[in-house]
Design a protein around this nucleic acid. Structure first.
Lengths: 341, 341
DNA sequence: TTGAAAGCGATACCAC
DNA sequence: GTGGTATCGCTTTCAA
């Protein structure tokens, strides 16, 4: 087992060369006062010459701060191919640069007894971003552990517990409204809906929004017009035939996620149904793929990058501002018109 | 500035409760010998009861090993939306789970004097995966620093320096051969080529392979048939018109990356050129998007996930095996037939 | 303003 | 087998 070379330059080496105590060098490296300008400058010069580089691990151990952002995501064998999350991560990465922190990723397998708090302790993560909570599990104790121990964190999803926490989400009611109003403007009144996972925050919200608004807007109310997916491509492909087989077919289909819309598109193409000629189609999210499908998908954009960045911003503020109240940031969705309706 | 609760359980707390020295607890936690079975079991039980969790940071500091995999990527404002890299990262993440390491990401900005070696020192990264090297810069000193200091690493690209290093890449000659033979089998003899970035390892390799093989296979040899992109969507969109404007148009276009092929497709559609009717089109890589475009793109698959996983495997071996010789793993590409030719 | 000493949590060596 | 002690690189009192 090889080891690091012992030769790496430490704060003591710099101190010795400068003829001062290493604590003085520490003060300089951390830009603190109580060091005379000319000594400060001399030490800075020497440390540069020697190629000194602070050891973040040692710094982390003594200070209990990690200079990282820990992103925790649910166990999933192909997490890094899900563009929905990646766009959020892209925003998180931008924020990391802004705050000069490194990015760490942890997959959370709650069935193995892993928890957000344990991860934070194990790695001294003091700033955590939680993606996509599994709402079939009660995470309120875990959340409380984080709070009680002063760990700054944000959820990138709505939180349904009592605790006040930082969270970032999109205004689903507004998003569904944008979609339905657009469909109405195109003359549709019979609209099929493919709902998302019931074990998420967004799934039920969008479903409720659809129910409420479609009634308010006077659309057909048959129960058959709603089928249930789980946000994935496969579920869209699987569920859409139920809509197509209806005695009285809808004229438009609104899927609660782009992946389901693309799956539905695949299934409809296989049946020779033309979009938007025979059937209008809309998605939700505006993930990377939807600009490439044929026809390009009209959808509701979630500002995913902004959401990732905002999540970090909130966590940083709750770390730095003495009396910061955790808050929920609800971002505005946007209608992206393309050619599927 | 809030701090962690001091209350987190340490090895000493466990030792005190068990009435033993903390060094004994350490031995147990690390599954080492020299502890009697019954004492071992008692300590294990107590540590579980107390919810003890090893502090990876402290462990890292003393052992100079980080229990992480550090992925270094070139500065890019939207790195996490480039699916090419993400598929590699997906493989890296799988390997991380296998070896029980956490994932860390670092963007490298060489213009700011950052280097692979400095990053490894700063964060005590003992296992590093280097994505996509910028070959306009000389990284041989940096690479030597990594080697000399016993840091295990792999490149996910070909390395052109003298040092022997772990690297993972695809057999570009074979990939180009697969593509050209397929095009030939479809009756094409006049093939346009959009080359990739000259500042990469793959770009020039694929270009050379195209030149050599297209001559050997008796395709038309006009210089005009080769235009120069840089792997990006935009460059494909920009360069393909040069091919279309030729007095004697090619009957097929082969792009050195899928992104360029998709860009070319966009430009051709805009001109009303039907694919594959008027023009056959092939890409290279098999990134996520190509299955969604219309028509689905025929391409050469790089086994990106396997490449990411293999890169970690090699680095782990060079860390663990005493006389491991760094090696270059050249993986086989594969023809993926879809509908663009 | 500067320096000496303590300590973060863990590993490893060397006595016993 | 088990326990005491030094150490990893750094931050942080506290004296001087």
């Amino acid at each position: 087992m090889k080891r690091f070379d012992k030769s790496s330059i430490t704060i003591k080496d710099v101190a010795k060369r400068a003829g001062v105590a290493h604590s003085t060098v520490s003060l300089v490296m951390n830009d603190r006062e109580h060091v005379s300008p000319k000594l400060r400058e001399r030490i800075l010069k020497i440390s540069n010459e020697m190629g000194y580089m602070p050891n973040m691990v040692a710094r982390s151990l003594i200070s209990k701060k990690s200079a990282t952002v820990g992103v925790v995501f649910p166990e999933n064998p192909h997490f890094f191919t899900i563009t929905y999350f990646l766009m959020i991560i892209d925003g998180i990465q931008n924020a990391c640069k802004k705050y000069d922190r490194a990015l760490m990723f942890f997959s959370l397998d709650q069935t193995k007894g892993e928890s957000y708090y344990k991860i934070s302790r194990k790695w001294l993560i003091d700033l955590m971003i939680i993606l996509n909570v599994d709402y079939t599990r009660d995470i309120s104790k875990d959340i409380r552990d984080l709070k009680d121990n002063g760990i700054a964190f944000s959820l990138v999803t709505k939180y349904n517990g009592k605790e006040k926490v930082n969270s970032v989400c999109v205004d689903n009611l507004e998003g569904v409204r944008l979609a339905l109003e657009y469909l109405a403007s195109k003359g549709h009144k019979r609209i099929g809906f493919i709902s998302g996972s019931p074990n998420s925050a967004d799934g039920p919200e969008r479903l409720d929004a659809f129910k409420v608004l479609s009634k308010k807007m006077g659309f057909d109310q048959d129960e058959d017009l709603i089928v249930h997916g789980d946000f994935t491509f496969e579920s869209g492909e699987r569920e859409v035939p139920k809509l197509l087989e209806l005695k009285k077919r809808p004229t438009a289909i609104f899927a609660a996620s782009d992946y389901m819309a693309i799956g539905a598109m695949r299934a409809m193409k296989a049946q020779g149904i033309s979009i938007p000629g025979d059937m209008a189609l809309m998605g939700f999210d505006n993930t990377l793929e939807v600009a490439y499908v044929e026809p390009p998908l009209t959808t509701i954009r979630q500002p995913l990058q902004e959401m990732g960045e905002k999540a970090v911003d909130l966590a940083v503020r709750s770390m730095n501002e003495e009396n910061f109240e955790p808050q929920m940031a609800v971002l505005k969705p946007e209608l992206i018109k393309r050619q599927s309706c």
